[in-house]
Design a protein around this nucleic acid. Structure first.
Length: 536
RNA sequence: GAGCCGGUAGCUCAGUCGGUAGAGCACGGGACUUUUAAUCUCGUGGCCGUGGGUUCGAGUCCCACCCGGCUCACCA
């Protein structure tokens, strides 16, 4: 890609961030022989599974990466770094074989059998889950395992440097700790040679010249000597981050605001080691619809599975693009708007690619996706109106609204129709209240039933509509509006609805007959099973 | 205690380089419709948290304060 330095002035945060990376790289050139270009990192905790925030972080980092490539014309790599050598602190509650895991507490995740039995270790299992997750979205990245890096010696030189400057490293961290933790703190966490546990103990001696850590097991009072290099110890969190930045030459890493202090302290340690910390970017965390924090126990907020059940991943990417440094509320109601705003930007991108356009970043520069001639908000309304429990119901109405539009000509619309139907099934249908018909209405419905039964199945909407009026007029409704209200409320469980002739034509005469029979049976006192409510 | 974000229409939010205040929803009128929905159209609605400062001019930049939310101070 050819460099376009003018892009660094584009008022879009990925370009602003990329300019920071370019400046950092210019001021801190890679050493001779090292791969050129910039290194971007995203990191993952050891025990958690990928979630909506994981998606956001990788998507956002990717946008900065691409912007960097456009500005500088230089290559850029993204490593997804898994801290899989970390000790297991507690047994997660969403896994099998908890008793087995409990026996391995404190050991590196890669040294613990996989409770699912599908991978060589628990760490390998989680790593595979992470990669599978990232792969479903087509992210480009290089996976990095902390354990592999430690054992493979990729951190050895940096570890020895940290040993040489052990006191200075401790001096960064100690002032931030309480008295209790201060007494036991060490940037080095040796792996216990007998138990395999990642030890949090003070170092008696740190001897870089001998590649040796000397420490005492508090449980046995036994002295141990552990090699610094080769994966026999790992670094404690903030030191570990700094070590990684220093050893790999990371140029850019973003993180949530909960890590502001860690970024600061790890940066200081990185400098103590003789490196320059990466350009950093702090994003805000998401809240629920009431502006409250999202907690798994409360179940508030929104999972990525929920989002992707009701809207395309591009709309989630767009949501993530928007104001990453503002605390945004993440709950169901933001989805339709995100979809429609995304569609708007997609349309503009197709016509004229502009680097300030969010869709420019989401689609890496351009797209010829024709988008959707109908907005998502409208589709959701329509789905409710026409009782769209099947895509074909929506398509029937779409064909009349936008003639010539088909799933082939508008693949995006075809996807949105599926999402709208899912929305209707999960959120609208369960709220429908089918009331029983009055005596008057019962008579009219029975009349309609006879009429429909004698009607050809391919009767068109207008013909059916005419018959509906005739049936309504045959019965003493105060006005015809009441007749149609009866149809919506008794047959569909809704207060309002579509022109009923059109509905019957699409829903099918046999289907409509079924609706009426069900309603009459309900009115006769039969106890029908309520529609099953979805898990919200 | 330290730090981050926010406060703009009834609600949810946008507001670019400082230049007459915007959208969606809601509400009201109209069109379409064989008196029914979606849809389309027009409209009502603002001390831009408060006070100061810079400026010819501030929602926007600076300072102070008030209110709300979140995060970190154990681990990662």
């Amino acid at each position: 890609m050819t460099a376009d330095p003018s892009l660094r002035n584009v008022k879009a945060w990925p370009f602003e961030e990329a300019a920071k990376v370019a400046d950092r790289l210019a001021a801190n050139p890679k050493p001779e022989g090292a791969p050129g270009g910039a290194l971007f990192e995203t990191g993952y905790g050891p025990s958690g599974l990928p979630h909506i925030g994981t998606f956001g972080e990788v998507a956002r980092t990717t946008w900065v990466r691409r912007a960097f490539e456009r500005i500088t014309g230089l290559p850029a790599r993204l490593i997804a770094f898994s801290d899989d050598m970390d000790g297991l602190r507690k047994v997660p509650d969403n896994v099998p074989n908890k008793a087995m895991l409990a026996e391995h507490l404190g050991r590196p995740l890669t040294a613990i059998p996989d409770p699912f039995g599908t991978h060589p270790s628990f760490g390998a299992h989680n790593n595979a889950r992470l990669q599978a997750f990232l792969d479903t979205f087509g992210f480009e990245y290089e996976f990095a395992s902390s354990t592999d890096y430690y054992r493979g010696g990729r951190f050895d030189a940096a570890l020895l440097r940290m040993a040489e400057r052990h006191d200075a490293v401790k001096k960064v961290i100690l002032p931030t700790l309480g008295a209790e933790r201060k007494a036991t703190y060490s940037p080095f966490l040796p792996i216990h040679p007998e138990t395999g546990v990642v030890m949090q103990v003070p170092m008696e001696e740190v001897r870089p010249e001998d590649d040796l850590l000397v420490w005492v097991d508090p449980a046995t009072a036994k002295r141990h000597g552990t090699r610094i290099t080769g994966g026999h110890c790992k670094a404690q969190w903030k030191a570990d981050w700094a070590l990684r930045w220093f050893a790999l030459g990371v140029d850019y890493e973003m993180s949530g605001k909960d890590l502001i202090d860690s970024v600061k302290l790890s940066g200081q340690i990185c400098r103590v080691l003789g490196g320059t910390p990466p350009a950093s970017f702090t994003y805000e965390l998401f809240n629920d619809e009431n502006g409250q924090k999202i907690s798994k126990s409360k179940g508030n907020g929104l999972t990525i599975e929920e989002w992707l059940r009701y809207a395309p991943p591009e709309s989630l990417a767009y949501f993530m693009y928007q104001s990453p440094q503002r605390a945004k509320r993440l709950f169901f109601d933001v989805i339709p708007r995100a979809v429609d705003e995304y569609l708007g930007h997609l349309e503009k991108l197709r016509v004229q690619p502009e680097p300030t356009n969010p869709a420019f970043h989401i689609h890496n520069g351009s797209s010829n996706d024709p988008g959707s001639p109908i907005g998502f908000g409208m589709l959701l309304n329509l789905a409710s109106v026409v009782n769209a429990d099947e895509p074909e119901m929506l398509w029937g109405f779409i064909r009349r609204y936008a003639p010539g539009v088909t799933p082939d000509s508008s693949p995006m619309l075809a996807r949105l129709v599926e999402y709208a139907v899912a929305y209707f099934r999960d959120f609208v249908a369960p709220t429908r209240q089918h009331r029983a018909p009055s005596t008057l209405e019962r008579g009219a419905l029975e009349d309609l039933l006879q009429v429909l039964r004698s009607l050809p199945e391919d009767s068109d909407a207008e013909a059916i509509q005419t018959l509906l009026y005739e049936v309504g007029k045959r019965h003493p409704f105060a006005n015809l509006r009441d007749w149609f209200a009866c149809l919506y409320q008794v047959l569909l469980g809704a207060q309002e609805g579509p022109r009923f002739g059109g509905f019957v034509a699409l829903y099918g005469i046999p289907g409509t007959i079924g609706l009426i029979e069900t309603a009459l049976a309900r009115g006769a006192g039969e106890d029908l099973a309520p529609r099953e409510a979805p898990a919200a």
